[in-house]
Amino acid sequence: MPAYLKQGQQQLPGSMGWDVFFSQASFPVTALDNNTSLGLADQAAYLRDTDLKKIEVSRIVRKTSEKQSRWVIENSVNSWRMHFGEQSGGERAGLFLGLGTVDCDDDGAQISFRGDYNQLAREGLSQIKPLSGLTLLNSTTASHIAERLQITGANGVYSPHADAGGNAFAEAYFNLTENRCDVALVSGGSQKITPWYFLAYQSDLSGVSAQAWCPAEAVATVLLSQSPQSAEGVLLSVHRGFSANFQPSDYLLDQIALQLAQSRDGTSAEKPMQIIHVGLPEQAQKMVAPLSRFFPGAHQLLLDTVIGTTGPAGAAIGVNLALEILKRHEMLSSNQAQSNLDLELVDAPVLNAPDCVPLNCQHVLVACYGLQGQQVFLLIGGTSTANALVGDGKGAQHG
């Protein structure tokens, strides 16, 4: 059974749009000092807050929800409304979230860091209001979204690394293709950038150069459905693996290549695939060579070099970007003038900002990497592939 895709909304740092991928635009960054970053990063990219008034949630939700929760709630509700209006989700709708860990720095009173991580934790915990931790659990984010949209079907919340967003897609896909739900809302939200962010990941980031990455706040949502109606693409396969040295197994890549070959028609066989890497640039770079070996000529984009490291939001951003690339490719294939799209095609095999994303492809592989070696691969086809699946009755595969 195919898993059809519909683009949701995304919010990127500094209100960036797709131009950051298709032109020379750059994202805004803010310099960090050691009191904020604990010396682990030199700069960060921030996202504006929201008061949730536009999506008409209850006053108690607006008052008690935490900032990074508010991002996901608003983005999820608005994405659902794009396709279903005020229609309730019901028991055949699922909800799957990839979220960062939470903290209590909403008041902006940052704790001074004096080189002792234990002291930082003790001071922070002593300043938390009684029972406030109960409002910060990731499950409350899911509860507020489910209540607002009346989604009562299968659900799951995954934290905290970059692959959390990928695993949210994987579980949504499995629930959909195994007929546990008819539609699934998948959303990913970054952890907000505070001293607690760096404290939470201090051991994982200790070997990463402070100049080699930029933490960023972002949120994005995608909808999966059993129905091909208004589909903007199709999730062809999901593959999960693990590698301590960030080298995927040949068997796993063989399975992806096999699914790609089965989904191609005679006109797309010669077109290179686009690969979008989601994860720290130093880790993603290690995946370029093995993927090039299995997918010769593939264009590879390191997402975190373009918009910063968005953690669990990266998978949903990557899938939305994949759908945008495929949509624009099909527009070009329909003999629309390239000049009207204000895009630039490039031949570089590995793309970093400020290069532009190529469009001559009909399949995109979104590869998500966790800090400790987790891997989730999502193979996506465009509307022509989705239409072909409807015609021949083929379904998607997973591994």
Rank of each mutant, 00 (worst) to 15 (best):
G98L: 05
L99C: 12
G100M: 09
R59C: 01
V77S: 01
E91Y: 07
G100Y: 08
V72Y: 01
W71Q: 06
N75A: 10
G85Y: 07
K67S: 07
N75T: 13
T64K: 15
G94S: 09
I55H: 04
F84T: 00
E66R: 14
I60L: 13
I73D: 03
L99S: 07
W71P: 01
S88T: 11
K53G: 02
F96W: 11
I60N: 12
F96C: 08
R92F: 01
G89T: 11
E86R: 15
S76L: 03
G85N: 09
W80N: 03
V61I: 15
E56I: 07
L99R: 14
R62S: 04
E56S: 14
E86Q: 15
V102Y: 11
W80F: 09
R70Y: 02
F84C: 08
K63Q: 12
F96V: 07
E66V: 14
W71Y: 11
L99H: 05
N78R: 09
R62M: 10
R62K: 14
K63M: 09
G108F: 06
G85L: 05
F96S: 11
K54Q: 13
G100R: 11
Q87D: 08
N75G: 06
I55Y: 08
D107C: 09
G94F: 04
G94N: 11
K54M: 04
G89V: 03
I73R: 14
S79H: 00
G89E: 11
